[in-house]
């Protein structure tokens, strides 16, 4: 018996040690950042990294002296609006590609796929001119309108709509449901999970936008949080690391919480193509 368990035990200890060390390495930037956010800036500047003068002063400063809450609020508005819009418009397009028969359907779907080859980053110049001509600069709309739909979303939902049982469609035909009713009452509820996954993706995608808002927002009233943090760093000419780390913590902690809760849905979205 000893012969069997001993290598197993040492093997386990080795596994746990390795896991712990790797986890610590991955978490190190978080931990270092979090720790410095509690230190007075003077202590950081002098290199007293192990100072015991911890306080919440940096957080108080961040909340009272910077518009960090406003930035968070802006991002929340933009991301929520983008998410809702994509859920509606992507599912509508996917519905058309799956349940409607019309001329040029294949061609149009090909066009949708083709847009995935065109990086938005390479189109910022004309897009800037477009939103300028539309009078959208420095507003929430400028960060939502170009992203009302996404070819990726259409593609993903189409895949999952096609996996619906044929009986549902037959039942709907028997009941005499029109397209709008069938779409609203059956297709959407049936595909809740992929919709949820798309929602999570579009929300996070909008939340992480960086280049576009940087070009199109000029005041703190509309600036989302990613650019807000950049703004704070460039505005703060002193090495106020404590407060900067505090703002980073304020931004990252809610995201982490939401992510750990919603993790399951990202995984299912990616691995199963949101089929089930």
């Amino acid at each position: 018996m000893d012969i069997v368990t001993k290598p197993k035990l040492s093997r386990r200890i080795w596994d746990y040690t390795l896991l712990t060390v790797l986890a610590l390495i991955i978490l190190a930037p978080f931990l270092i950042g979090l720790w410095t956010s509690f230190l007075p800036t003077m202590q950081i500047a002098q290199g007293n990294f192990l100072s015991t003068k911890v306080s919440l002063q940096n957080y108080i400063d961040a909340f009272t002296q910077t518009p960090i809450l406003r930035y968070l609020g802006n991002s929340l508005v933009i991301s929520t609006a983008t998410m809702i819009a994509q859920l509606i418009f992507c599912s509508m397009s996917a519905y058309a590609f799956v349940f409607l028969k019309f001329k040029g359907r294949k061609f149009l779907f090909g066009m949708f796929l083709a847009t995935m080859m065109l990086p938005f980053e390479a189109e910022i110049i004309p897009n800037f001119q477009t939103v300028k001509a539309l009078g959208l600069l420095n507003s929430y709309s400028v960060m939502v309108i170009p992203f009302l739909t996404s070819a990726f979303g259409v593609f993903m939902l189409r895949q999952s709509f096609m996996q619906m049982p044929i009986e549902l469609k037959e039942a709907a035909d028997i009941e005499g449901l029109g397209h709008f009713q069938f779409y609203w009452k059956m297709v959407l509820p049936y595909n809740r999970i992929p919709l949820m996954t798309l929602g999570a993706y579009s929300f996070l995608g909008a939340w992480n936008q960086y280049l576009w808002p940087m070009l199109t927002t000029f005041s703190n009233d509309f600036r989302p949080v990613q650019n807000g943090l950049r703004q704070l760093q460039s505005e703060e000419t002193f090495n106020d690391w404590g407060m900067i780390q505090a703002t980073a913590a304020i931004v990252v902690i809610p995201t982490l919480i939401v992510l750990f809760i919603g993790q399951h849905y990202f995984k299912s979205g990616v691995n199963e193509g949101a089929v089930k």
Partner: peptide
Amino acid sequence: IFAIFALVLGLAFVHGSR
């Protein structure tokens, strides 16, 4: 989650904007 959203939004827009 919605409570947190509402709270952050509320706080954000109470802050003076210019």
